[in-house]
Simulated scan of single mutants.
Amino acid sequence: MLVNDSDFDSLVPGLPLSRRTFVGASLATGFALAVRPAQGQSVIQTSAAGLAAGDISIKAPDGVPVRAYWVQPSGKGPFPTVLVISEIFGLHEYIRDTCRRLARQGYQAIAPNLFQRQGDPASVGSVAEILSTIVSRVPDGQVMTDLDACASWAVANGGDSARLAITGFCWGGRITWLYAAHNPKLRAAVAWYGRLTGVPTDATPKHPSDLVSQMHAPVLGLYGAKDQGIPVSDVEDMRQDMTRVGKRAELVIYPEAGHAFHADYRPSYRAEDAIDGWARMLAWFRENGV
């Protein structure tokens, strides 16, 4: 079931951001915090009937068992694999349902809990706390090796090693760009409103705009012109930079969309743009052999 789409501006006032600068105090606007979701209950409900699905544990290189949600079509496969990366709100029902939607399209989907060492976003009372006590403490390097572990697990459990893709939303959109520059075996990446620029920190030493020349996989980026945390100028600069170094990217800007326009459990959801983005994502995967 779909609800009527609505345009909902972020509660955090927008700040002007230049190509290479990012105001530290505006970290929250980089995630366009329209609301604090309670349960992440997806309006679109996708049944797991006829699919193989469940909660799994994948051992990371540091020995930590990373919890994840896994789903794929019934049968042995091998199936093309998509790593699904959450927003700052973690592995809740919206992300799980997104995985089931992908499985209905023939994919094995794995959504890891990339915050588990730092905390559980669902147990924190405010967005500011999620950012300061959990998200800001998650090292990019740790995330990359956790995703590598998920990719390896996929190959041993019904996934096709030659057909690996990644998609992510908001915080996960930025991670999607980073993973496209990290894993040479990745075939395709789709970043939904992922932040492109930033100041370096110990946890986040580089951002997508710093890694243009290192991109291994073609990237589809889906953005909203009314996103108060990601200026259109950043998206256009990324488009030009990718073209300049000969890297393949398609960057789509939806004129009436803000941030989180795919998140059907939030007021920012825009059904028409979300449906179009989803169709583009599936076409991008297939165009690139996933």
Results as ranks from 00 to 15, higher is better:
1 M>E: 03
10 S>P: 10
10 S>F: 07
10 S>A: 14
11 L>W: 05
12 V>P: 00
16 P>T: 02
17 L>H: 06
23 V>K: 00
24 G>M: 01
28 A>N: 01
29 T>E: 02
30 G>L: 00
32 A>C: 12
33 L>I: 08
34 A>Q: 00
34 A>C: 13
36 R>A: 03
38 A>Q: 09
39 Q>C: 07
39 Q>Y: 06
42 S>K: 08
44 I>D: 06
44 I>R: 05
47 S>Q: 10
48 A>D: 01
51 L>R: 03
53 A>V: 12
54 G>V: 12
56 I>P: 05
58 I>L: 08
63 G>T: 11
64 V>L: 06
71 V>Q: 01
71 V>I: 10
72 Q>N: 12
72 Q>C: 11
72 Q>P: 06
73 P>E: 12
75 G>A: 10
77 G>S: 04
77 G>V: 04
78 P>K: 08
79 F>W: 13
80 P>S: 08
81 T>D: 00
81 T>G: 03
83 L>M: 12
90 G>I: 02
95 I>A: 03
96 R>D: 04
98 T>Q: 13
100 R>T: 09
101 R>Q: 14
102 L>M: 14
102 L>C: 12
102 L>H: 12
104 R>I: 04
105 Q>H: 15
107 Y>Q: 06
109 A>D: 01
111 A>I: 06
113 N>Q: 08
114 L>Y: 15
114 L>P: 09
115 F>D: 02
121 P>L: 13
123 S>Q: 15
123 S>I: 08
125 G>W: 06
127 V>W: 00
128 A>G: 03
130 I>E: 09
130 I>N: 09
132 S>R: 13
134 I>A: 13
139 P>W: 02
139 P>A: 10
141 G>C: 09
141 G>R: 13
145 T>F: 10
147 L>H: 11
149 A>D: 02
151 A>Y: 07
155 V>H: 07
159 G>N: 09
161 S>E: 10
163 R>P: 07
164 L>A: 04
165 A>E: 03
166 I>F: 08
167 T>H: 06
168 G>I: 00
169 F>W: 11
174 R>M: 13
175 I>V: 15
177 W>S: 07
177 W>N: 14
180 A>T: 02
182 H>K: 02
183 N>F: 04
183 N>A: 14
186 L>Q: 03
187 R>C: 08
191 A>K: 09
191 A>F: 11
192 W>Y: 15
193 Y>E: 02
193 Y>S: 13
193 Y>C: 14
195 R>K: 14
196 L>W: 01
197 T>G: 10
199 V>K: 07
199 V>A: 10
200 P>W: 05
202 D>V: 14
204 T>M: 10
204 T>K: 13
207 H>C: 05
208 P>F: 05
208 P>I: 06
210 D>T: 12
213 S>G: 13
223 Y>G: 09
225 A>E: 13
234 D>N: 15
237 D>G: 11
239 R>M: 06
240 Q>D: 15
244 R>I: 12
245 V>N: 14
245 V>C: 11
246 G>W: 04
247 K>D: 04
249 A>S: 15
250 E>S: 15
250 E>P: 02
252 V>L: 06
254 Y>A: 03
255 P>H: 03
256 E>D: 15
257 A>L: 10
257 A>N: 04
261 F>S: 05
265 Y>H: 09
265 Y>R: 01
266 R>Y: 09
267 P>M: 06
268 S>H: 01
271 A>V: 08
271 A>I: 05
273 D>M: 08
276 D>A: 12
277 G>L: 10
277 G>E: 07
278 W>T: 14
279 A>N: 12
287 E>T: 14
288 N>V: 03
